[in-house]
Computed example of a mutant assay.
Amino acid sequence: MSAPPALPWSSAPFGAALRAALEARGMSFRDLESRTLVPVGNLHGHASGVRGVPGDDLMARIAEGLGVGPDHFREWRERRLVEALREVPALELELSRRVAEGRLADWRPPD
């Protein structure tokens, strides 16, 4: 059996991204439940926002069940960005200043 086609990274919030990935895969919440062993009620809760965005372990299980990498989800990537910024305090300060001043859109990385 071949792997499903790749899905582009989502910029939507987790619930909307989960629903879109399910639709793109032609899957139901029950299908995903059987692949992840996450109860369908919990999946619905995460998709609707009632349960909030899942943690990394659960998000990775859901992603695997969908046949995508966890980086498909914006919140996964955001968490990695925060971790990376902690490693480069000067960059965090620069970006934070620009956000505070409303100048983030004009930031470009150095060559």
Rank of each mutant, 00 (worst) to 15 (best):
F14G: 01
G45N: 10
R97Q: 15
D71N: 12
S10P: 12
L66D: 01
L104Q: 02
R61S: 09
G49Q: 11
E92A: 13
R79V: 03
H72A: 04
W76L: 06
P109Q: 01
W9S: 12
P39D: 12
R80K: 15
R77G: 04
G52L: 07
L85W: 04
A105S: 15
G55V: 02
L95F: 08
G67C: 11
L32S: 08
M27N: 00
V40S: 11
R86H: 13
L58V: 15
L91T: 13
E33H: 08
P89C: 03
L95W: 05
R98D: 10
E64N: 08
R80N: 05
V68K: 07
A16P: 00
L43R: 04
E64M: 07
R77C: 05
A3Q: 10
A17H: 02
L37F: 12
D31L: 00
G102I: 14
P13W: 09
P110W: 02
F14M: 05
L85H: 06
H46A: 09
V82N: 01
D56A: 14
R30P: 00
A47K: 13
D71R: 14
A84S: 06
E75F: 06
P4A: 07
W9F: 13
G15Y: 11
G67P: 06
A3T: 07
E101N: 12
N42W: 03
P39Y: 09
L22Y: 02
A60R: 06
E83P: 02
E87T: 14
T36V: 07
I62H: 01
V53Y: 03
S48M: 11
H46W: 13
L104M: 09
H46Q: 10
S10Y: 14
S11C: 00
G45K: 06
L104Y: 05
P54R: 02
P54F: 06
R79S: 12
N42A: 13
L43V: 12
M1P: 02
L7V: 12
W107Q: 12
P109I: 08
L95K: 04
P54M: 04
A60V: 02
W107F: 15
M27P: 00
L91H: 08
E101Q: 15
R108H: 11
P54E: 04
V68T: 11
A47P: 14
L18Q: 06
T36H: 07
P89V: 04
D31H: 05
A90F: 04
P89S: 06
L85R: 10
E83S: 13
A17I: 04
E101V: 08
F14N: 01
A63S: 08
R79N: 09
A6D: 09
V82I: 11
G102K: 11
A84N: 01
H46Y: 15
G26N: 10
F73C: 13
A63R: 05
G41I: 06
E33F: 05
